[in-house]
Design a protein around this nucleic acid. Structure first.
Length: 469
RNA sequence: CGGGGUGUAGCGCAGCUUGGUAGCGCACUCGCUUUGGGAGCGAGGGGCCGUCGGUUCGAAUCCGGCCACCCCGACCA
């Protein structure tokens, strides 16, 4: 077979770019760092959104929408927040042909505007918790853009909540982390993630605690798939989100924020993709099965394929017919692999003459001849099996490329090819700075039992050190 | 901002050393033959060679200015 993509082992970043272009996922936008999300990729994003949205609502949050433009002064109200974001802000200085009295920033995230309105809406402990989410685009001027992974504009959901107590805020943040994010990634994207706490150095600007979900990519690097933050009372004080308690005292609320973005598309590609293209987990795939008319003779092949499509659709399979018989079969097969359809069913005259079709699984490329009558059952079974197989394979790769070490030097060595699990006490704040100079970061910290620590100063924590995107 | 590099068709590139008015692969259009793993042959369409100026009878090519972009050193969903 002709080589379609640069093999991953030869040049992983090149493979990634080739894939995005050949599978028609995205194009670079005219302004550096921007991207055009093409229909093939956008359909996947829409399914991510639908699943995430359902889970977020189940966790009690409601959707709302806040403005794209934020007064520059808002950002400045929280000292760490401005400091963290000012290098990557897009600032609008003119509007309607005139210079603006106060510059307006294009939102890099919405803690500040939402904080302003939370302050208006929260008066009493009865107004809490206030659980909001918004689907939006945000802009962070990036120096090193990479499609999906780091672009100057991207799409995401950002949740913002206010609670009466610190414990409530913490519980809700972790609930989102575990019940929304981890399950979404595990059950829909088939990506195993390590949950942990970011070090103070890696913490979100303005947060008191930042939690992360880290996934390993095909080349052993780490990717942060999502984050949740406890913001303490930092924003509550900056925006005066106060309320009267049951006891009649005036209190500041405790706020949180949490987000996942189109970066997950990049994670999906780099976690499951192989040298032939994307592999989309069946639960996520906009089209789960592609029924391919291999070639047409007298019209009977297409008609048999149509019947199969109807049967599969009736069984709840998201299915599409490929009857472009004037395009060579090989091209269509390669295209289907690039785009990562989980299952392809080949319907051709040779097999059909014997009442058969061929089931092709994208997961491992295997081909299985089937009697027409058993096709629907075999497809649904394969979809279920391959959802799990992708997860298991990703988990096995992560295990295989994670090394348990006891010193910083060993950890830096191991981070050359994968992840290092190392006692946090062997790294420390100084070791972290040293690692950063070698392009290795502390991805997260967790306790011996895998749970999330309350601070980086707890004893006996484990750190994951790795290179990252 | 410091160092290195590149601007020629939608994409990827050659041509520049040694000036003579632009070519290759892919993609695109049409026709015929094909179609069970990126089909073959034939015929077409598409570029004022980043930009401004200079040298010259003549500049993609030589000289100078400017602009843009890319890669390496200070970040994040």
């Amino acid at each position: 077979m002709a080589r379609v993509l640069t093999p991953r082992a030869e040049d992983f970043p090149r493979w990634y770019q080739d894939l995005i272009s050949k599978a028609e996922l995205a194009d670079n936008g005219p302004v550096r760092g921007t991207m055009v999300i093409r229909p093939t990729a956008y359909a996947i994003w829409e399914r991510m959104q639908a699943d995430m949205d359902t889970r977020i609502k189940a966790a009690g949050a409601e959707n709302a929408y806040f403005p794209l433009f934020i007064p520059e002064s808002y950002l400045k109200r929280e000292a760490e927040h401005v400091e963290g974001f000012s290098p990557e802000l897009a600032v609008v200085t003119h509007g309607g042909g005139k210079q603006l009295a106060e510059p307006v920033v294009v939102r890099p995230t919405s803690e500040t505007v939402i904080g302003e309105f939370m302050a208006k809406w929260v008066d009493s402990y009865r107004d809490l918790p206030l659980l909001l989410n918004q689907w939006a685009n945000v802009v962070r001027w990036e120096m090193r853009p990479r499609v999906f992974l780091r672009t100057s504009e991207f799409l995401w959901q950002e949740g913002h909540t206010a609670h009466a107590t610190e414990a409530d805020a913490k519980d809700y943040t972790l609930k989102i982390h575990h019940e929304v994010y981890e399950r979404h990634m595990r059950d829909l994207l088939a990506i195993p993630v390590v949950l942990g706490r970011k070090t103070n150095r890696e913490r979100f600007a303005g947060a008191t605690s930042t939690y992360t979900l880290e996934a390993m990519m095909g080349d052993g690097k780490a990717l942060q798939m999502g984050t949740s933050h406890e913001l303490g009372q930092n924003f509550a004080k900056a925006f005066d989100i106060g309320y009267s308690s049951q006891a009649g005292t005036r209190e500041y609320a405790w706020t949180t924020s949490w987000g996942t973005s189109t970066r997950m598309l990049g994670g999906l590609i780099m976690c499951h993709g192989d040298d032939n293209g994307m592999r989309i987990p069946p639960a996520l795939a906009p089209v789960q099965a592609l029924v391919t008319v291999v070639k047409e003779t007298d019209g009977s092949i297409t008609s048999a394929a149509r019947t199969l499509v109807e049967d599969l659709a009736a069984a709840g399979v998201r299915v599409k017919l490929d009857d472009r018989v004037d395009t060579p079969f090989g091209r269509r097969a390669v295209d289907a692999e690039l785009k990562g359809y989980p299952i392809r069913v080949e319907v051709g005259p040779r097999d059909l003459a014997e009442g058969r079709v061929v089931l092709v699984r994208r997961f491992d490329g295997s081909k299985t001849p089937l009697q027409l009558g058993e096709a629907v059952g075999a497809v649904t079974a394969a979809l279920e099996a391959d959802q799990k197989a992708l997860y298991d394979e990703a988990l096995a790769r992560r295990e295989a490329h994670t090394v348990e070490v006891s010193t910083l030097d060993e950890a830096l060595e191991a981070a050359g090819t994968g992840w290092a699990r190392v006692p946090w006490s062997a790294v420390g704040v100084d070791g972290e700075a040293l690692a950063n100079e070698r392009a290795v970061t502390v991805r997260c910290l967790f306790r011996a039992d895998g749970s999330i620590p309350a601070s980086q100063d707890e004893p006996d924590l484990t750190a994951i050190l790795a290179r990252s995107y």
